[in-house]
Simulated assay, not measured.
Amino acid sequence: MTQPTFGKKIKELRTTKGLTLDQLATETGSSKSYIWELENKDPPRPSAEKLAAIAVALGVTTDYLIGREEVTIADAQDKAFFREYSKMPDDTREKIRAMAKLLGGKKE
């Protein structure tokens, strides 16, 4: 099975999140036409800064977007979440851990 192209990944993630081209452009400091070009031109040529902003907005890693990782979308989302989690204050991380235990059915 072939992996989706860079542009297809962006479009699929954007539409799954319910974002328009305009909304993703705004979130990433880009223009609507730039996002459209990334989704539709082959091969796209995004800057590292724009690529990072798009990955953050879509909740995945840059490696996932450019195809360096042979992982599922869920794995890429988990890695992106963990990066955000790692930057959170200690008390927030403790709350998230407690919530995860409750959701997972584990008791302390």
Rank of each mutant, 00 (worst) to 15 (best):
K11Y: 03
D75A: 15
T28W: 05
N40K: 10
G59W: 14
A98N: 04
Y34L: 10
G18K: 15
A80I: 06
K87A: 15
L65W: 07
I54C: 13
T20A: 08
G105Y: 13
F6Y: 06
I96E: 04
Q23H: 05
M1V: 09
E108F: 14
Y85K: 07
G59T: 12
K41D: 03
G29R: 00
A100S: 03
E70Y: 03
T26C: 09
G67A: 11
D91S: 15
K107Y: 13
P43N: 00
K95W: 04
K9D: 01
L19P: 09
R45P: 01
V60K: 15
F81D: 01
K50E: 08
F81P: 01
M1A: 11
E39W: 01
G18A: 12
A57Y: 09
L65Q: 12
T15P: 02
L21W: 07
K79M: 10
D91E: 15
I10C: 01
P89L: 13
L102R: 11
E69C: 12
E39P: 01
K32Q: 07
R97S: 11
F81W: 11
F82T: 11
S30M: 01
G104Q: 07
V71G: 00
A74F: 08
S33K: 10
L38C: 01
I73T: 00
K11Q: 03
I96C: 11
P46W: 12
E39Q: 03
L51H: 08
K87R: 13
E12Q: 14
F82Y: 15
T72C: 10
Y85R: 02
K50Q: 06
A98I: 11
I73P: 01
R93T: 07
E94F: 10
G29Q: 00
L24R: 08
G59S: 11
T15C: 11
K87G: 07
K87C: 10
A80S: 15
K41H: 05
K8G: 09
E49M: 11
E94H: 10
A55G: 08
Y34T: 11
A76F: 00
T28D: 05
D90A: 15
L102D: 07
I10D: 05
F81Y: 11
T2P: 15
A57V: 01
V71C: 12
E94C: 03
L21K: 06
Y85H: 14
M99L: 14
Y85T: 02
F81R: 02
E49S: 14
K106V: 05
A55N: 05
Y85I: 09
A74E: 14
G104H: 05
Q23E: 09
A52N: 09
P43I: 04
P4L: 10
L51Q: 06
S33F: 08
E69Y: 02
T62L: 12
F82S: 10
L24Y: 13
A98Q: 13
E94K: 15
P4S: 06
P46C: 07
K32G: 01
E37K: 13
P44H: 13
E94G: 04
K8E: 13
Q23D: 04
E108N: 10
K106M: 06
E39G: 03
G29I: 01
D75V: 12
K107V: 12
L38M: 08
L51W: 11
L13N: 08
G18T: 11
L38T: 00
E27Y: 13
I73R: 00
T20F: 00
I66C: 08
A52T: 08
K9F: 04
P89D: 07
V71W: 05
A57E: 03
L38Y: 04
K101C: 00
E94R: 15
A100R: 08
I10F: 04
S31A: 08
